[in-house]
């Protein structure tokens, strides 16, 4: 592996270490939330940015994994590998089910079917009170642990979320560069030709959805431990739509833009929300402006600026 390929993850780790050392509890939990939701948005970018599959049900993958981990934690304790394993398994399983339902039809139908599927998962989480706590959600979860080490403090959660985000970014990059990732781009660009090359659209898209489900599931499995709470909002379609907003603000197809967009959105929600009731208006305006002026998102706008700066 060359030095330059290691440089970026190294810089990421160094930045994380610096932030972990310097930030306070509130900021660390907030950053952990950004990194976890950002990882889910990253997995959505695989579908939208590379497969052209606009899923309005992505929160179902993330949220069901969060519920699965939270429920398991109440009975088994919150061991990190167990939580990750359960989240990934749940995310993949729900994605498989979702794929069987939504990948049969064209773009608009896919959107609606994904929305319906997501809302069905929400209905289950909302109404199955004995298991999911209904509208109240689940509270009083045990803190995350790894063997003898407790990982429930803000710093550990932030580091875990950061490692997961970096790892997912690496997985996403490798996916996009792999034959499977290329094939996914092919199904977006020219579905008919892909069939004429011997690819089955369903096989390509289904595999991509499984990968996205596993990634969203991993992120979801840690999410309840940030605030020791999981509620039905984490499955609702408005979170799916919010994830799309985050992705577009950050930049569809840029991978790391997913984290940028998530950070911008959640920062607006937290800081503008503290200052005015109209933060949704701000988010909406920012989103519409992005779509109108910079449809490639902040990530590519940022890159373009730095490139302009470099070349004389």
């Amino acid at each position: 592996m060359s030095l330059s390929r290691l440089a970026l993850p190294m810089a990421g780790l160094a930045a994380m270490a610096a932030v972990a050392a310097l930030s306070g509890d509130f900021q660390l939990r907030f950053l952990a939330e950004i990194l976890l939701i950002g990882t889910a948005v990253l997995s959505l970018d695989l579908l939208i940015g590379f497969g052209g599959l606009i899923s309005l049900g992505h929160a179902a993958l993330f949220g069901s994994a969060a519920y699965a981990a939270a429920i398991a934690a109440q009975h088994l304790g919150a061991s990190l590998p167990v939580m990750l394993g359960i989240g990934i398994a749940m995310g993949t399983a729900v994605a498989a089910l979702m794929g069987l339902v939504i990948l049969r039809a064209g773009s608009l139908f896919l959107l609606i079917l994904a929305l319906l599927f997501g809302q069905i998962v929400w209905e289950i989480c909302f109404h199955w009170r004995e298991v999911t706590g209904g509208a109240d959600g689940l509270r009083g979860l045990p803190p995350l642990s790894l063997g003898p080490w407790a990982l429930g403090d803000a710093r550990s959660l932030f580091v875990l979320a950061g490692l997961l985000a970096l790892g997912s970014l690496g997985v996403a990059r490798s996916f996009v560069a792999s034959p499977l990732g290329r094939a996914l781009i092919g199904t977006r660009e020219q579905p008919i030709r892909m069939q004429a090359l011997g690819y089955t659209l369903f096989s390509v898209r289904f595999r991509a959805l499984l990968v996205a489900g596993a990634m969203a599931g991993a992120a979801g499995s840690l999410y309840p431990f940030v605030n020791l709470y999981v509620g039905p909002q984490s499955v609702h379609w408005t979170l799916s739509a919010t994830m799309i907003i985050m992705l577009v603000i950050g930049g569809v197809g840029s991978l790391w833009g997913a984290f940028l967009g998530t950070a911008v959105y959640l920062a607006l929600q937290t800081y503008v929300g503290a200052w005015t009731d109209r933060w949704q208006l701000c988010v909406g305006l920012l989103f519409v402006l992005t779509v109108l002026v910079m449809p490639q998102g902040l990530a590519s706008g940022f890159l373009r600026l730095t490139r302009k700066g470099r070349t004389p």
Partner: peptide
């Protein structure tokens, strides 16, 4: 595939012929 390079267009077919079109 308009957004992809010419070589990548042909390789998309060659990979599938080799049975590796969906490998990771």
């Amino acid at each position: 595939f308009p957004a992809l390079a010419l070589r990548e267009n042909i390789a998309m077919a060659a990979r599938q012929h080799a049975g590796r079109g969906l490998s990771w």
